[in-house]
């Protein structure tokens, strides 16, 4: 019996996986898709819940939550806490989630300076004003790695983590084995 048939017959229920992109560039999600045809094998083992790939808006009870990006605004905090509350295993994916990454370079400046540079003094800005609509999530004073906001179970470093890193991590985890990355898969850039 193939794994797919086993999954369909309900003998091995598929693990539920949710993903979210906070303050990142979506590169980590693109890298996940770089597993290429292995994604067919992956969807035999897992089922996607909330993720930009399914466009489901609310995260349900999940086995694994993958978080790309750091925490830069109030909505990031809300989404991250929802994921922590609903996912048994929460994973920081990529440099921004692990240590703030490139977006955290704004921590060198006061938030007011950043906003004024972009919306007031920026080259080519017309009708300069700092956006202040109630629909826009408020920016945090600083960008934070996600482990500074919630408890995190695993970390996948890299900018982005390579497709092989995702594959090694997910297959080892689903198989219940200790996750072991070869040297070439541990990098911070």
């Amino acid at each position: 019996m193939s794994e797919m048939e086993m999954a369909e017959s309900g003998k091995t229920p598929k693990l539920k996986v949710a993903t979210a992109a906070l303050c990142g560039c979506f590169g980590c999600h693109m890298s996940l898709l770089d597993i290429d045809e292995r994604i067919l094998k992956l969807v035999e083992l897992i089922e996607f819940d909330r993720t930009p790939l399914t466009d489901i808006k609310k995260v349900g009870k999940c086995d694994i939550g993958l978080i790309e990006g750091g925490v830069a605004n109030a909505e990031n905090v809300e989404v991250l806490r929802e994921f922590r509350n609903n996912c048994d295993i929460l994973v920081a994916v990529g440099a921004c989630a692990v240590n703030g990454g490139v977006p955290a370079m704004r921590n060198q400046f006061d938030l007011k300076e950043c906003l004024e540079e972009v919306y007031i003094h920026g080259i080519g800005v017309e009708n300069p004003q700092i956006p202040n609509d109630i629909e826009i999530p408020l920016l945090l004073d600083k960008v934070h790695p996600i482990h500074e906001v919630v408890r995190v179970d695993y970390f996948l470093p890299g900018c982005p983590p390579s497709a092989d890193t995702f594959w090694t991590f997910l297959t080892d985890l689903i198989a219940g084995e200790a996750i072991s990355f070869p040297y070439s898969l541990i990098h911070y850039d």
Binding site: V98, N107, H147, E148, Y183, I186, H187
Partner: peptide, 16 residues
């Protein structure tokens, strides 16, 4: 990499 460090563990100082 030699110590297989995967995360910074501590709270970032973010000095200016």
């Amino acid at each position: 990499y030699n110590t297989r460090m995967l995360n910074p563990h501590f709270t970032h100082f973010f000095p200016k």
